[in-house]
Nucleic acid binder design. Structure first.
Length: 840
RNA sequence: GCCGGAGUGGCGGAAUGGUAGACGCAGCGGACUUAAAAUCCGCUGGAGCUGUAAGCUCCGUGCCGGUUCGAGUCCGGCCUCCGGCACCA
């Protein structure tokens, strides 16, 4: 017999919506709990792989309600982005319509999964009511000098026809479509996220409840290196043998190094071929032509979009020399593409003995190699390869014999005292390129005026609305489709009143998602972006739940926005998400479940056949939620069976419910069978509590409820479950506990059985059952008796028997005396309630 | 190469330094049934001993060592897989 899941689920989904179960009163700030799930891109149908995120979040929110918290669980839509535009092109449907339809479908799916939110707070990034404030925030960044335009070589995706942020380029290809990225030299908008590099890195220390791997990824991404920037004077032309004309061109190169202790081994300089001073540097050397050609070949190589799979060790001598300010020796200056213009100063001091890249370069061009560090223990790979470790300094003038760590500091001190260098910190993190040459995004609220330059749209004029009637096919000229909308582009300059042009790019959609968690608190406020005092009361988010694929992009950007808003006094906190939980993916046939892989499991037939509760239970039971889980159709049956057993347990004993004798259950009046159930019930309460508290181990919490159910079944099979009897009362008690423990996971069935077993209020307004530790403990335990650490006997004894008594019992155990054969123990170790180890 | 994470039965997975394999799936045997489904009960890491039903021994948590009375768990050294970063000075 299967329980009528369709009927039950329909009934409660309707009831929860009508009663606004997940609707929170924001004025009640005590016991607040902001439970946030990463808002989804409305791509259409949700498959079971997506489901995990929302089911975990929903179960968590419901559990917290039962714990007595005021739970804020809102939901919205990351509704701007390329798929809508691409779908629009292929299906000839407007992105706004496509998006709206998808949102409706996904809401319907949440509804049928029993995943509930406070829909009065729903928001969507493409809603002018929302993006008005995204634009407002852009202007605030601009006014604070953190949004700026810069001409730079940028990542261009030829297939998406737009520029991309560094974060969206994966191994030289587009994160979204996989096309090879080229470089283009364009003027674009950037957010100065590097201004917060230190805070973004240092504050990771405070995020104690974030997964280690996410913290590690963010650290890798920001990648701070501390070192010294050293100034190398360039020798005037003519002094090093080349003929030439006096002191034209650059006078010095600044080079960043993380190993100032190797300065005496710096035998040449390498400069990026893209470095702006190259022309001036080589002018007059007589090598201009060949260097010009070299630079052009390297540039072509880079623009061709080659992936950086093959490190190139090409290079060319410039004909110029610099001087090592420490060793005073001449250093030839080379150009080589292995030095990147984007990092540090675009020029390096090469220490071939202690940097493998420099080593290979020196070998190739037959340059001087000087060993200056020797390991204090072990062997050095030098001279076969570079030794990159620490050690004792050699060949280093007055520093010879010094420990390299100490030398590091002394050399920095000397360099600073003598103005040949300064301590410096460099980051791998680059500023965030936010312009996109696409239609379906938040318009950048800026105006380009020939007279006044770039001016922001006056805040009262926001939002700058995205025009509806646009030919949004990519134009092929590198401009956004908005550039073709005359009525949009032409505008009066807000400063001088002359004809000016709007910025026609839209923002990266990660801008939209960098602050949505603030907007939920006052989603319909048309005075401010978010209610400052509510935000300061309800944030940081207590628990954020989402996919690890956002470990860098979204989480880094949202942290940046929070720090910015804190800096300008709009927020009192510096980190938006107190706790982060990243759930694993659902895989099928060993690979991530996704539309593109064609291995998605559609939840609809599962819900039809087994019910939403079974699907939820399966997803939660499949394994620890932070790990990936393999989808197996067969295992769903087991979850369905479990819920049917509970339903049957109710049906077969329905007469005892709501007919309790109103007296406390007294353990000392129970017989063995009754004690077993009573203890198991208390044990299950504690087990579920512990499993869910820290790491949301629903899988083991569910197994505890299964164990309780097994004990209840055999208790019931033993008979005597009658109304008003002590067995009936006890069974009733256990059943009430079971339902409350399971309710967050399988809410529909539990609500139904909670109601049928005599409760008027929703199970989610009921409090969680409280356990008594003593009741959960076993009365008798199995004592394990070891001889020399090997198990030789087991014997049931009373719990909490004292150590001496345990030792006596163990030594008089018949099997043990037999095995000891008269030998007297050297030592007896007793672990109370566990085991005895007899050493002979 | 650097930084994270993970390796346990046929499978998903459990185990505050103390009985490895909870719970579930699959499998096998049985009960119910005309039969099947559903349901319920029992068995289920491997090898062996004893000799017919209860028990016993040894081996077993990626590999090699160590600490400990005792290690899946702690320490050192590897191997494999997954993720991130990588010509970042």
């Amino acid at each position: 017999m299967k329980y009528p899941h369709q009927e039950i689920e329909k009934k409660w989904q309707k009831r929860w919506a009508e009663d606004r179960l997940m609707s929170v009163d924001l004025s009640k700030v005590d016991r607040k709990y902001y439970c946030l799930m990463m808002y989804p891109y409305p791509s259409g149908d949700l498959h079971v792989g997506h489901g995990r995120n929302y089911i975990i979040g929903d179960a968590l929110a419901r559990r917290k309600m039962m714990e007595g918290y005021n739970v804020l669980a809102p939901m919205g839509w990351d509704a701007f982005g390329l798929p809508a535009e691409n779908a629009a092109l292929t299906e000839n449907i407007h992105p706004s319509v496509w998006t709206r339809d998808n949102i409706a479908r996904m809401k319907e799916q949440f509804y049928r999964w029993g995943v509930i939110y406070d829909w009065t707070r729903e928001l969507a990034a493409n809603d002018p009511e929302y993006y008005r404030w995204t634009q407002w925030l852009f202007i605030q960044l601009f006014k604070n000098g953190l949004a700026y335009r810069k001409a730079a070589s940028v990542n261009w995706c030829p297939s998406c026809q737009t520029v991309l942020a560094n974060e969206q380029v994966v191994g030289g290809t587009c994160e979204r479509c996989g096309a090879e990225i080229n470089e283009r030299f364009l003027e674009q908008w950037f957010f100065k996220i590097t201004d917060f590099a230190d805070d973004l890195l240092d504050d990771l220390e405070e995020l104690k409840s974030w997964p280690e791997r996410v913290l590690a990824m963010q650290r890798n991404w920001i990648d701070r290196s501390e070192g010294l920037e050293i100034r190398f004077p360039i020798k005037p032309l003519g002094q090093s043998g080349s003929s030439g004309n006096g002191n034209k061109g650059p006078q010095f190169f600044d080079c960043f190094t993380t190993r100032p202790d190797t300065i005496f081994g710096a035998t040449f300089l390498v400069v990026s071929p893209e470095h702006p001073v190259v022309q001036d540097l080589v002018s007059g050397t007589g090598r201009e032509a060949e260097i010009q050609e070299f630079v052009e070949v390297e540039r072509a190589e880079k623009l061709s979009g080659r992936t950086r799979a093959e490190p190139r060790k090409t290079g060319i001598f410039t004909g110029r020399y610099a001087v090592n300010p420490f060793s005073k020796s001449d250093m030839p200056i080379y150009l080589a593409p292995y030095v990147l213009m984007e990092y540090g100063t675009g020029s390096i001091m090469a220490v071939p003995a202690h940097d493998q890249r420099d080593f290979e370069f020196a070998k190739r061009f037959d340059l001087e190699i000087v060993e200056v560090i020797r390991p204090k223990e072990g062997t050095t790979p030098f001279p076969e390869a570079a030794y990159e470790g620490e050690g004792e300094m050699v060949n280093s003038g007055s520093y010879t014999g010094e420990d390299s760590g100490v030398g590091f500091e002394k050399i920095c001190d000397w360099a600073e005292a003598n103005s040949v260098g300064k301590r410096m910190i460099n980051y791998r993190l680059r500023d965030w390129l936010v312009s996109r040459q696409r239609y379906w995004g938040t318009p950048i609220p800026m105006i380009h005026c020939d007279a006044c330059g770039v001016v922001p749209v006056p805040e009262d004029d926001l939002p700058v609305r995205l025009p509806e009637n646009v030919d949004f096919r990519p134009r092929g000229d590198g401009k956004s489709p908005l550039a073709g909308v005359e009525s949009f582009v032409t505008v009066e300059c807000p400063t001088c009143g002359k004809v000016a042009a709007r910025d026609t790019d839209t923002m990266d959609t990660f801008v939209d998602s960098s602050w949505y968690f603030l907007r939920y608190l006052s989603p319909h406020d048309d005075e401010v972006a978010f209610d400052k005092s509510l935000a300061n009361q309800w944030l940081p988010v207590d628990q954020y739940v989402g996919g690890v694929e956002h470990a860098i992009l979204h989480l880094l950007y949202a942290r940046f926005f929070t720090k910015f808003l804190n800096r300008i006094g709009m927020l009192s906190f510096v980190e938006p998400f107190e706790r982060l939980f990243t759930q694993g993916m659902i895989c099928k046939d060993g690979v991530k479940m996704s539309k593109s892989k064609g291995n998605v499991v559609n939840p609809d037939p599962i819900i039809e056949n087994f019910g939403a509760d079974t699907m939820r239970l399966y997803i939660l039971f499949a394994g620890p939620p932070e790990r990936d889980a393999e989808w197996r159709d067969e295992s769903i049956e087991g979850c369905s069976r479990f819920l049917n057993r509970i339903y049957r347990l109710y049906e077969e004993h329905s007469s005892v419910f709501g007919k309790r004798a109103k007296e406390d259950l007294k353990i000392d009046r129970f017989d063995e069978d009754e004690k077993r159930l009573f203890r198991k019930t208390h044990w299950a309460i504690l087990k579920v509590q512990r499993d869910l508290e820290d790491n949301f181990h629903f899988n083991t919490a569910i197994s505890a409820t299964m164990e309780l159910t097994n004990v209840m079944t055999s208790f019931a099979d033993a008979g005597g479950i009658t109304p008003g009897s002590s067995r009936g009362d006890l069974f009733n008690f256990a059943f009430d506990v079971l339902i409350r423990l399971l309710a967050p996971m399988t809410p529909h069935l539990c609500e139904e059985l909670w109601e049928r077993s005599g409760h008027r209020e929703s199970v989610f307004s009921a409090s969680l059952p409280q356990a008594v530790e003593d009741f959960a403990a076993q009365e008798t335990i199995t004592l394990v008796i070891q001889i020399n650490s090997r198990i030789r006997a087991r014997q049931p004894i009373a719990a909490d028997t004292d150590k001496d008594e345990i030792e006596r019992i163990a030594l008089s155990n018949s099997r043990i005396t037999e095995l000891l054969g008269g030998r007297s123990p050297k030592k007896v170790l007793v672990i109370q309630n566990k085991l005895v180890n007899i050493i002979v």
